[in-house]
Computed example of a mutant assay.
Amino acid sequence: MADNKAKRGGSDRGLIALSEAYEVRYWSKKFKVTPLKLKAAVKVVGRSARKVEAYIKLQKHKASDRALIALSQPYEVSYWSKKFKVTPAKLRAAVKAVGHSSKKVGAYLSPKKAVKKKKTVKKRAAGKKKTTVKKAKKSVRKRAT
């Protein structure tokens, strides 16, 4: 987009003018980032749209790498094992089953935990019913005597 409407050359179209609100909206929408992130990228790499686009893609790639589980790093295995409250062996098995994405591993491990919780709740509910029945029988016995 041209920052000077009188100039319509190709070299001006490849530059981002932060002083123009419509350009900030256009480039933010095109790169799928907030205007603040666009302004920060322009500040780091300059006004060139190509350089800004490459920088934004690099930043998105780095952010997605943080959510990956690297089994080759012992500190990562320890961290994710504690986070998901599983043993390292179970973590490795989960990563092998669904991949290195922490979201997928979390989803894979959480249904197992939810099933255990449901079973526990059912046992507790069944136990409470039994005690209620026992109390009712005791009260009937007391009345009879």
Rank of each mutant, 00 (worst) to 15 (best):
A2P: 08
D3A: 15
K5R: 14
K5H: 10
K5Y: 11
R8E: 12
G9N: 15
G10V: 09
G10C: 12
G10H: 09
S11Q: 12
R13K: 15
G14I: 05
L15D: 07
L15N: 09
I16Y: 02
A17Q: 05
A17M: 02
E20P: 01
Y22C: 05
E23H: 11
V24S: 07
R25I: 08
R25S: 10
R25T: 10
Y26N: 04
Y26F: 12
Y26K: 06
W27M: 03
W27F: 08
W27K: 02
W27N: 03
W27V: 01
S28A: 14
S28Y: 03
S28P: 04
K30Q: 13
K30G: 02
F31M: 14
V33A: 04
V33W: 05
V33N: 03
V33I: 11
P35A: 04
K37V: 10
K37I: 06
L38N: 03
K39Y: 00
A41Y: 02
K43M: 04
V44K: 15
V45S: 05
G46R: 07
S48P: 03
S48E: 12
S48V: 03
R50S: 13
K51H: 15
V52Y: 09
E53K: 13
A54M: 13
I56K: 05
I56W: 05
L58V: 04
Q59S: 06
H61A: 12
K62H: 06
S64V: 03
D65N: 13
R66A: 07
A67N: 09
A67S: 13
L68W: 00
L68V: 04
L68H: 01
L68Q: 09
I69H: 01
A70C: 08
L71R: 02
S72N: 09
P74R: 08
Y75V: 10
E76Q: 11
E76H: 10
S78K: 12
Y79A: 00
W80M: 01
W80R: 00
K82L: 04
K82P: 01
K82Q: 09
K82H: 06
F84P: 01
F84C: 03
V86N: 00
V86W: 00
P88L: 02
P88H: 02
K90N: 05
R92H: 06
A93W: 02
V95H: 01
A97M: 05
V98C: 04
V98R: 02
H100Y: 03
S102Q: 00
K103G: 05
K104E: 06
K104P: 00
K104A: 07
V105K: 00
S110Q: 11
K113G: 03
K113F: 06
V115D: 11
V115W: 09
K116W: 06
K117Q: 15
K119V: 14
V121R: 09
K122F: 08
K122H: 11
K123W: 07
R124V: 14
R124K: 14
K128G: 05
K128F: 07
T131W: 04
T131H: 10
T132G: 11
T132M: 13
V133T: 13
V133H: 06
K134M: 13
K134E: 11
A136G: 15
K137I: 10
K138M: 13
S139N: 10
S139V: 11
V140F: 11
R143Y: 10
T145C: 04
T145H: 13
